[in-house]
Design a protein around this nucleic acid. Sequence first.
DNA 1: ACCTGAACACCGTTCAAGT
DNA 2: ACCTGAACACCGTTCAAGT
Lengths: 191, 191
Amino acid sequence: MPTPARTSIEEIVAAGRRVVATDGLDGLTMQRVAELAGVRAPSLYKRVPSRAALVRLVAEDLLRDLSAALAGAVGSGDDQLRRLAVAFREFALAEPGVLALVFAPLPTAMAPSPQALAVAAEPVLKVAGQLVGDGQALEAARTITAWATGFVRMELQGGFELGGSVPRAFDYGIRALALGLAASRPPMPGL
Amino acid sequence: MPTPARTSIEEIVAAGRRVVATDGLDGLTMQRVAELAGVRAPSLYKRVPSRAALVRLVAEDLLRDLSAALAGAVGSGDDQLRRLAVAFREFALAEPGVLALVFAPLPTAMAPSPQALAVAAEPVLKVAGQLVGDGQALEAARTITAWATGFVRMELQGGFELGGSVPRAFDYGIRALALGLAASRPPMPGL
DNA sequence: ACCTGAACACCGTTCAAGT
DNA sequence: ACCTGAACACCGTTCAAGT
């Protein structure tokens, strides 16, 4: 006598995202997620093999939205780095889980797939290429990513104890990076 | 009839550091630390009020050593930013716990004190001041810190899936930052 | 088929009892 | 004064039993 499904994988992942956004990765317990999904914890194992797998699904869900936000922010013009950085900061402040689940060293079973990460990296590589040319795009993209993730993590951590304006420091960093990357650009061949 | 002490707060913190270095923050359980300290878990509560407090003690212990490493790396010359960044990277690769306990959003009870963080920030502010002058030292220091912590975290995470040389990307970032910060420097008054 | 309570092995923490 | 086993409330996970 089949019982009708009372939840779904989509609902479970959405519940996981809600919990992560409010209580962080440690708050993502099977019982809390089950409660939000309207079932008991053991029922989750019908759709998800383990908590680690659920964490990964939530990470990849976040990553999909982040990729869309970044891709939507960049276009053409001379302030692509700023638009990219601002889009990333806004997303990460709204969904702090992205730093805990996507840009953090997690056990392999929880980490999002390299493919999912590559999709998010695309807009960064594009902007980096515009700034420094294709030959250095990868190194420049890594510099941008390292700075942006490091900055927002410090901000979320409350790591700006020494005073000063956080948005001003963000702006300062964007400008310094843009200047520094442009200065790193090799001379155009033939010029 | 007093029982002789079989461990000490120093030994407990040292055990905590060893566990964090190998198994990360999640591996820091009271039972594992107690085992390394040669006692049972309940005995730890004679010296430490909670796991959160122990995490903080380990974080501040790491931070003390990091501060010393950074202060020892900077001197005078034209490659201070490089020496600072290299010292930070080497420390964080040897003691990955520093990123998990010091440069991560943790509950207040686990986070190191602002004073301890300020000590570690001093060499960074010094180098930043040399590069851009005192007026922008704070913003420049934040840019440096955000980039360096973000970079090494990506490295520890294995987040360099797209190929290329990691040390080369680190060097590239140092150079771009040095160029960008120098270009941000306001003109000297009177020149 | 899916859902559940009960059970198991963990974890942090408390506490009475031992020396 | 410190150490310990036992206990409690949690957690992830399994599984037999229910529908």
